[in-house]
Write a protein that binds this DNA or RNA. Structure first.
Lengths: 330, 330
DNA sequence: ACGCGAACCTAAACCGGTTTGATAGACCGC
DNA sequence: GCGGTCTATCAAACCGGTTTAGGTTCGCGT
């Protein structure tokens, strides 16, 4: 028994294919009575339209894409993607859309987008990990592929964006440390070519605080940067990290060196609350971003006008890893 | 300027659509000369076949699916998926296949598979987080959807599987602890209805060691379980955890309670090497599993016979979190 | 009684590939 | 020189939807 097609439904309801199609797409101009007959027939036969056929005639893919250009190991440690993707799915699945993932080595990122666009596999894409002077923006415009980004304030991307402001989180962390009496507060940032790393660094710079070390968001990088800071002359009494992973690795280094130092992270990963001492960090909501981004992207694909979507700013979560100067951290 | 179609290529090469199609699919029976003319024309025009049209006429989706039925928060902390997916992609992208992701709440898992199958969006799926008496096996058979699982020894799944053996890793961890003088070695496992949790537990049981607490693979669960163990009478001197996340959370609890206890994790997450003390754990290779699983799935879809694929067993990575009894853990 | 527009529906073309049955021509042996 | 096979190619049907350009039918105004 093969899958029923629109033809079968049409025959069962005694109408033409065209009419069934009209009903399916909620077009006006079909009598109530006929409409019901068709819907009944469809239910009876268990018919669902073949989205392949639909895709062919409407040249829509009914799917959106996500290109991840990171090394697998780094991906594994990043709490952002799974949550973001879950949020995206939340929106997509309600609307019968699918999410197509491409994971590519960093140097094949462009090819990844070209593949998705060229084979018309997706109707639009998410643009993540925005970089300074990101070449992908031009690429996507060239490809004519609708896109939505996760962007930061003051950096126009040319696409509608979910506007995430990391600054209040960083500022709050620094203020919190200052209130605890810290006067030399360092920052361990992510690669500065990433917009989100750059803006966190900028927010921190504007507080006028101490030394800065650039790392790469990895545990290894965070540990290394911490060692540099603590073994240098005039070590800071507190460190603001650009993510939890580096912060946790940094805490371990400080413990090993026996240097008491307050630390804050960024992301509020699940583990943050369960390390010792529990990590003071900044809570973000990638799940929400995913939902919003997907809504925006679908809207864009439908031809809506592009607008940015603000989301609530990151919030500081105070835990035990920050303590008054001179006090003991553990 | 619209995308060229097969018709354009045919016209340019002075042949019929059919012949172009034959060449494209590498079918025999086309003269060398004609073949070259067609390929030249195709290159000239920059033609790539529309996979939508292809999908319609061959009723193949050229995509495989992955259903993730976990809460977003848990997903974020799990290092398995990103690495697995990266491996999968590695295989897929070479073969022009796409990966369609579905993230659903746990109670909608079945609907997720039905959606993928019903809309013919994918030609096959990966079946992950296999459970004891998994109902999805019957479901997929009912749906007639080819599938590949990540399975454990001795538990036939009915589908070709990447055969992962966690036991040597657990056994090695216990032996290692025993050699260090530990005599009461506890196990904090994952939910027992998961096959991988069950088999780790079983391997540990067969070593004849101490108390067992079931947790849920989360940091919170690991911390809670650890507290129970250490605050009970006859606390263990070592704990074997079923994943790194619980192990790290457990270490923190032990530190807070001031109880010296050796711990081992499972997964070898990036962070494992950078906590204090560095975590002794078991290294697995989900990237490889992803590659193998994708190869198997594509083979299966092509109609090859199903066979299980063994992968190298997990290996113990000894670090500082395991120390001789009576010695200091930090 | 007739013309007209609205409401409803149909037939057929189309999307861009794959696949099948037919055919034209080359080559073969006798 | 003729039937028979083989090769290379073509034309047309098909996949399962959407869309457009007409038809019918009907009620209504005059």
């Amino acid at each position: 028994m093969t899958r029923p097609t629109i033809r079968d439904v049409a025959a069962a309801a005694g109408v033409s294919k065209g009419t069934v199609s009209f009903v399916l797409n909620g077009r006006p101009g079909v009598a109530e009575d006929t409409k019901r007959r068709i819907l009944d027939a469809a239910r009876e036969l268990g018919w669902t339209p073949s989205h392949q056929a639909r895709a062919l005639s409407t040249s829509r893919a009914f799917a959106v894409g996500l290109v991840l250009a990171r090394e697998p190991e780094l991906l594994g440690a990043d709490p952002f993607f799974p949550a973001f993707i879950a949020g995206v799915e939340r929106t997509l699945s309600d609307r019968g859309q699918a999410l197509v993932l491409q994971v590519v080595p960093e140097d094949e990122e462009e090819a990844g987008y070209r593949r998705l666009a060229g084979s018309k596999r997706v109707d639009g894409v998410f643009l993540l990990d925005l970089r300074v002077g990101d070449t992908r923006i031009a690429l996507l415009e060239e490809l004519g592929l609708p896109a939505v980004t996760i962007a930061r304030p003051d950096v126009p991307s040319g696409f509608p964006a979910v506007l995430v402001d990391d600054r209040p989180g960083i500022v709050a962390a620094v203020r919190h440390l200052q209130e605890l009496g810290h006067r030399r507060i360092a920052h361990v940032g992510g690669p500065a070519h990433f917009l989100h790393a750059a803006i966190r660094k900028k927010a921190w710079e504007e507080t006028g605080e101490g030394p800065y070390v650039e790392a790469d968001f990895s545990a290894a990088g965070g540990a290394q940067a911490t060692r540099e800071l603590l073994e240098g002359k005039e070590p800071p009494t507190a460190i603001v990290y650009a993510n939890d992973l580096m912060a946790i690795a940094g805490m371990a280094v400080a413990q090993e060196l026996g240097v008491p130092v307050s630390v804050t992270g960024f992301d509020n990963t699940e583990l943050a609350a369960y390390v010792s001492p529990p990590l003071t960090t900044v809570r973000t909501d990638p799940y929400l971003w995913g939902r919003k981004a997907a809504e925006a992207l679908l809207g864009l694909i439908e031809g809506e006008h592009k607008t940015d979507i603000p989301v609530p700013p990151a919030q500081l979560v105070v835990r035990g890893s920050t303590a008054p100067t001179g006090g003991t951290e553990r």
